[in-house]
Computed example of a mutant assay.
Amino acid sequence: MQNAQAHAHDDNAIRLVGFDGDDTLWRSQDYFDAAQVEFEGIVGGYADLGDVRVHEHLYQVEKRNLALFGYGVKGMALSMIEAALQITGQRMSGADVQRIVALAKSLLQHPVELLPGIREAVERIAAERDVVLITKGDLFHQEAKVRQSGLAHVFRRIEIVSEKDADTYTRLFGEFELAPAQFLMIGNSLRSDIAPVLALGGWGVHMPYHTTWAHESEAEIRAGQARMRSVDSADELPTAVRELAALADRGRNPPADA
């Protein structure tokens, strides 16, 4: 915690920076999008894709199942099978169910590919403040991604959680022993990474990914939010963090407003 100690006596200072994992540090949604296309190809052998609106149907099944299966490939695969059986009127063959299972296995085995410039950005930010990784999804899969990323050693702590909402962040703030105003979160998801942290009084840097699951875009954030910056690429992250940290150091903490 030596980076944070210099700010330990300043209640306004940003002491800890959190990073999301999927589509912030490494590619993820691209693989899910490709799986969606393959899934639609399988179902297309049984039904008119235009009539049954496969994409929308699958999303509704996945969203409904989140409370049971959580996030990640395994829950997605079960939802794919359920949706496919519904769409095809239970006519899907065992061989095609096996194709969906194989599709899920391939998603679990894809290599971890860091986004351009993210390693350097994380290391530069970590040189000035403590950093933590806060990611959600299947525990086994996320642990494997963290190992393969080569970034695990940079983070003070690695938290793999089932959901990233106000309750989760509140619990983590207690464990980290800091106030929300002393925390900044970096991520691609407005719903999971930015909105709940802003609502609690923290800070956020949004780095949109070129493709995002619809569920993660379901968030409303007031335009011109003073506690947030948006960047287009990883190399802009250190500057964005410094800008918000300077605002916090001057005691100019805008009210929480997501």
Rank of each mutant, 00 (worst) to 15 (best):
A240G: 04
D138G: 07
Q225Y: 10
S192W: 13
Y46I: 09
V101P: 05
A179P: 06
L108I: 09
G117Y: 00
G150A: 06
Q182G: 10
A77Y: 08
L49I: 07
A248D: 08
P254D: 05
H210G: 03
I186C: 11
Q182I: 00
L244F: 09
Q225F: 09
W203H: 04
H57N: 11
A248R: 11
V231I: 09
Y209T: 03
A104E: 12
A248C: 05
R99Q: 11
T24G: 06
D193F: 14
E120N: 09
E128W: 00
A13D: 09
R191C: 04
L172T: 14
P180V: 03
L244T: 06
S217V: 03
R119I: 03
F69Q: 14
V17G: 06
K74D: 15
L114F: 03
L115R: 03
G41K: 02
R124L: 07
V132K: 05
T239A: 13
S162P: 00
R227S: 09
I186E: 10
T239Q: 12
I118G: 11
L200S: 04
Y59H: 05
D51H: 04
D257F: 13
F19T: 06
A258V: 14
A77G: 08
S217C: 13
P116A: 05
D165S: 08
L198T: 03
R250T: 13
H57S: 15
D33C: 08
N3P: 14
R222N: 13
P254T: 04
I158C: 05
D257P: 09
T211L: 05
D130I: 07
K145Q: 05
V161E: 09
A144G: 06
A67S: 14
E40S: 14
H110N: 10
H206Y: 12
F155Y: 01
K145F: 00
I160T: 01
Y71K: 08
S79M: 10
A152F: 01
F176R: 07
V54M: 13
S192D: 13
L151E: 01
N65F: 08
A102P: 03
A84Q: 00
D249G: 14
M228L: 14
L108Y: 13
L25W: 01
E56L: 14
L66R: 13
R156M: 10
N188L: 03
V73T: 15
G224Y: 08
T168G: 02
E159P: 07
V154W: 00
A223G: 07
R53I: 11
R229I: 01
A47L: 09
P116M: 02
G150R: 01
Q225G: 13
E218W: 02
V154L: 00
A6C: 00
R229K: 07
Q86C: 06
D20H: 10
G21S: 05
Q36I: 02
A77N: 08
L139T: 10
R227Q: 08
D167H: 10
E128F: 01
